[in-house]
Design a protein around this nucleic acid. Structure first.
Lengths: 254, 254
DNA sequence: TTTCTTTGTGTAAAATTTACGCATTGAAAA
DNA sequence: TTTTCAATGCGTAAATTTTACACAAAGAAA
């Protein structure tokens, strides 16, 4: 990240931060990207501060690129967290002690652990494309299954809860999958994504009918081979129609 | 407001503000509350800063109480505005000059017109209950019909646009009316509210059937008299069921 | 060659949404 | 006092959408 942390903070908004819940889909499960703070076992969401000359959205993009190696990640702002005590839900004093053991006493004075309002974003990424990369504060960055997410620092568990709710809401009103699946995928794979996000099962015949009725998918002549069953067709999104359906809004009513 | 502005700002977050789009419903139209800045003809949304010891939601409530005289206003955070130039969409230099003519040169240095991220809320209120009250910066506070809203200061026109979109989205997934209508109202009045928010017409027979199917309304024995037609029944929301329906979420599909 | 799991496809029933008519009421007009 | 007129209350049929469900075919594994 930045060579000199204090220099960076001089060029950034101090009372506002942003945090990103990065969703990936792998082996039938939703995953989120978490970071472990240096010298501690405390985990948090990827986040950071907004530079004086960049918008909040630009900052979220910059941070996401740094953490994932990806450009043009799908990003959605969903809520801003402004509780007085949002930094004190968890024992930040212990965390601070451990961090100061690593960085030196007083290092973080005036940098973190003040009153900060945080803008929450969620991101949708292709799991396989991500290169999880720790930042200046952390020495580990990796995927966690949503079900296994531990107690996080600050109010980040609440952030994930809200991000997931926002994602579900989005899924009910827009097509989903372009950002979470590889370019080509089978209908059962797409269905599993929907089932995972919305946490319910669908009849595969009705699911196929509904999805095809949106006219955003193209069935290819290829099939996925190798599994111990009938080879399923591969599909891909027709980007223009996918975007159009997203702009107009569809109602996934199943 | 505060007797000493600079004293207030010492106890508040400086890089974060919040702005409220206050919706009222009157004579079949949606209205919003706007403020005219002292000594100028520039209008803006009601807003303010967050005190160090209050949450963003508390601040929004405090500000709304100050502007409307109401407690416990229905408030919903909908978006945070973080563009770099959100204070420069409009000729803020001219505004600043006029304000300094009123308050004295340099009065606002370090107080306004810096880089500020603003949290957008919308509020739903009973039009008749509101006592529009200007704040420290303004000398007029009044309702405007949504259709007549002029060019506002900063990015406040965009804020209203987004607030309205959020309100429409909310209306499609939750019951609406408890906060916008008086306690007792007729079915045609409720229908007109829906038609105004969603900007389309409904068949009154189907509308009545659908609304009654939610089981959130109670028909009273009273009727509204005085108009040159058949006296319509009065209805009122059953608060518990209204809240329950709001928590579960309903789908207004018409 | 057989078995077993998964995929591809279509149709009928149920539920929901939409369209629409007529009698009634109450103030205003005649 | 009577008539008129606009708005309200109530119910049913048609159209559409959603849901439920069964059987044949493919392909790897046994």
């Amino acid at each position: 990240m930045e060579h000199n942390l204090k220099e960076f903070f001089d060029k950034a908004l101090k009372e506002v931060s942003l945090d990103c819940t990065v969703f990936g889909f792998h082996e039938g499960e939703l995953k989120v990207l978490l970071l472990r703070w240096k010298g501690t076992d405390g985990w948090s969401l990827p986040g950071g501060h907004i530079l004086l000359d960049e918008s909040a959205d630009d900052a979220a993009n910059r941070i996401l690129t740094q953490r994932t190696g990806l450009n043009d990640v799908y990003l959605q702002q969903f809520h801003t967290f402004g509780n007085v005590n949002r930094y004190t839900y968890h024992p930040e004093n212990e965390l601070l002690e451990k961090l100061e053991a690593t960085f030196g006493k007083g290092f973080f004075d005036g940098i973190i652990f003040r009153r900060v309002v945080s803008i929450g974003y969620y991101a949708l990424v292709e799991f396989d494309q991500v290169q999880p990369t720790p930042d200046w504060f952390t020495d580990e960055c990796r995927w966690w299954s949503l079900a296994d997410v531990p107690n996080l620092l600050f109010d980040h568990n609440e952030m994930i809860d809200r991000a997931l709710k926002a994602l579900r809401q989005h899924t009910r009103n827009h097509p989903i999958g372009y950002n979470l699946l590889p370019e080509k995928f089978t209908m059962p794979e797409l269905q599993r994504l929907y089932e995972t996000i919305l946490d319910r099962q669908f009849d595969r015949r009705n699911f196929q009918k509904l999805l095809m009725s949106y006219d955003i998918l193209e069935r290819l002549d290829e099939k996925r081979v190798g599994a111990a069953n009938k080879s399923p067709y591969l599909y891909r999104f027709v980007k223009e129609k996918y975007d159009q359906a997203g702009a107009v809004g569809i109602s996934f009513s199943m």
